[in-house]
Amino acid sequence: MPENRYENTPRPGQDRYVAPAEEVTVGAVDAIAEDQTPSNMWQDAWREMRHRPMFWAALAIITVAVFIALFPGLVATQAPRSCDLAESLLPPSTEHFFGTTKDGCDIYSRVIYGARPSVTVGVLATSFVVVLGGAVGALGGYFGGLMDTLLSRLTDIFFAVPFFLAAIVILSLLPERNALAVALVIASFGWTSIARITRGSVLSVKNNEFVTAAKALGMSRMGILLKHALPNAAAPIIVYATVALGTFIVAEATLTFLGIGMPPSTVSWGGDLANGRLIIRQAPEILLYPAAALGITVLGFIMMGDVVRDALDPKARKR
C-alpha cells in the first residue's frame, strides 16, 4: 500500500465521478408523503385480507353457519324431529336432499338444526375464555411480581389437568346439561392458552417506550393497561380466539358424541354422529353429512384465524 494513500492518483474505474444533479434529485429531508391516505393497523390488515380468496371463503362459511344457527327454520325443509319410520334410510332425493336416517328423519333438516348448539357453545365458550383468560393474563403480565407468580401458577395448574378428562368428569357430574353448561365447562379448562398469550403480549408491550412515556405523564398503571397495553395485545388475542372458536365447536361435538355433551333431546351434529355410528357398516354415508357440516364450519373459523394472523403479522407489515 502506498505511503500516502490519499495522494494516490485514481486508478482506472475509480476516477472522480459526480452524478449529474438532474439525474438524482435530492428531496427535502424527511418530507411527509401527503398524497397517501392515512391508515392504521386494522385498515392495513383489511387491505391485505381483501385480496385473499381464503378470507372471503372463511367469511362466507362463518356467515352461513351463523345465519343457519340463528334461523334454522328458514333453511330447513321440515322439522328435525318429524321422523317417519316408514322412510328409514332413504337415499338422497328432491324431498330429502341428504336422504333419511334409520329412524326416517330428514338428514338435511337435522344437519341444519344441528348448527345451533355447536355455534352457541363455540361463541359462549370463546367469550368466557377471552374474558377470563384475558383478565388473568393481562393482570399477571402487567403487574408482575407476586400477582404474576400466583396467576401463572394457577394457569399452570389448570393447564396440567388434561382438558378432555376434566370436561368429561365435570359434565358427567351435572344432572342437567345445556349449551351454557357445556360452554362453561369447556371455558373453565380452556382459558389457559389465552391467558398465556395475553400475558406474553402484554409483557412485550409493557417494555415499549410509549408506555414509559405514558408513565412519565403520570398515567396510572390501570390506565396504561387499559389504554395502551390491552389494545396492543388485542391482535394475537383475536387471532387465537377465532381459532379457539373452531376448536371449541370440535370439543362440543366430541363431548356430545361421547354422550356427555348436549342432551339427546337436542338436535346436534355430535349426537347425530353418535347415532349414525351405530350403523356405520350398514350406511356409512349417513355420517358424511353432519361430519361435513361440522368440518366445514370449524374450517371456516380456523381459516379466518389464519388469514387474520397473516394480515396482522408485524413482520409481514414491516416497512
Binding site: 490519499y6 485514481p10 476516477d15 472522480r16 465521478y17 459526480v18 452524478a19 438524482v24 435530492v26
Partner: peptide, 28 residues
C-alpha cells in the same frame, strides 16, 4: 481510500476519500 456515496439506489458521487470530503460536488 476510495469512497462511493449512494443515495436512493444510485451512486451520486465517487472518488478518492479525502477529495470528496474536502470538495463535495453533488448536492447530497
Amino acid at each position: 481510500e476510495h469512497l462511493v456515496v449512494m443515495y436512493k439506489g444510485k451512486v451520486v458521487e465517487s472518488g478518492p476519500a479525502l477529495e470528496i470530503l474536502k470538495n463535495p460536488q453533488h448536492e447530497y
